[in-house]
């Protein structure tokens, strides 16, 4: 698989996905450039989450391949995909509810440092000062430092999502996939999250965002792909997409 553009980190090449007779994704060809924030929008059932699941290895595409940083991801296990530098925030937060907030944020740092498995059952968690400090610093950044000893399961929904984002950021991933990072958040929480994501953008991390909230999309995205009926119907800068009549008909038109 060759990629035309040097800057492309993630190349979703000619991906098809069918469930029985349903074509969930057809002819998907996406090129995500390094350091850019790429938003994928589309009405419900357009195939956005399916696309993300194909990228992270949760679903195997019926045809086509996903290439990340020169490596074919298709057929790899989720943990292998994470180990090459792809982190994901889920639509419903996937966290460790029974662990403390601090432990939730520390765990990903261990995966980054020690790899997919390390038999360190006689070393002490209390001696891992560096990871602890890093995690506390991260919790300060997202404003959850005072809740660090709480069970993560008792956080509010918005806090859980922010913590999940922090968990991903602890790994300094090359590519961050966000599945509706602000869904179910209050306006205030949404704005905090946008600010946080803007900060990450400054650090040059590549991001793919699936989002319903146009406010979020237009304040963050460098490039937008519009998905409808399992196909990409438009692609371009926020301005171009906003003015595209096909998009207005398929998606924005319904909302306004």
């Amino acid at each position: 698989m060759t990629t035309a553009n040097e800057n492309v980190v993630l190349h979703v090449a000619d991906v098809h996905k069918t469930f029985g007779g349903l074509h969930a994704l057809s002819d998907i060809d996406l090129q995500i450039e390094e350091g850019k924030t790429h938003a994928i929008i589309g009405p419900n059932g357009a195939g956005k989450s399916t696309l993300l699941n194909v990228v992270v290895g949760r679903l195997a595409p019926t045809r086509g391949a996903v290439v990340f940083d020169g490596q074919v991801l298709t057929g790899k296990q989720p943990h292998e995909i994470n180990q090459v530098g792809v982190a994901r925030v889920f639509q419903t937060p996937e966290i460790f509810p029974e662990l403390s907030v601090l432990q939730n944020v520390m765990a990903p740092a261990f995966a980054k440092r020690d790899g997919a498995f390390k038999l360190n059952f006689l070393s002490s968690l209390a001696d891992e000062k560096q990871i602890r400090e890093e995690a506390e610093h991260m919790l300060e950044d997202i404003g959850l430092i005072h809740q660090k000893d709480m069970h993560a399961g008792s956080l509010s929904r918005g806090d859980k999502r922010r913590m999940e984002l922090a968990m991903c950021l602890m790994q300094h991933p090359k590519l961050l996939l966000l599945d509706e990072p602000t869904a179910g958040m209050s306006r205030h929480d949404t704005n905090t999250t946008i600010e946080l994501l803007k900060k990450i953008k400054e650090r040059g991390m590549t991001k793919v965002i699936i989002e319903h909230d146009m406010h979020v999309v237009f304040s963050l995205a460098d490039k937008i792909s519009v998905l409808a009926g399992g196909r990409i119907i438009a692609e371009g800068t926020p301005e171009e997409v906003r003015n595209n009549p096909k998009v207005q008909e398929a998606y924005l038109g319904g909302a306004h």
Binding site: L99, P108, K118, F121
Partner: peptide, 30 residues
């Protein structure tokens, strides 16, 4: 020692949410 180790924390993580463990880069089987 096991309870207080990173290894013990990973085991608790598996009990708590195996999906998150996988997507965090841990191979849970070993």
């Amino acid at each position: 020692r096991i309870f207080a180790s990173p290894f013990g924390m990973m085991l608790r993580g598996i009990k708590s949410n195996q999906t998150r463990m996988n997507y965090t880069g841990f191979n849970t089987r070993p």
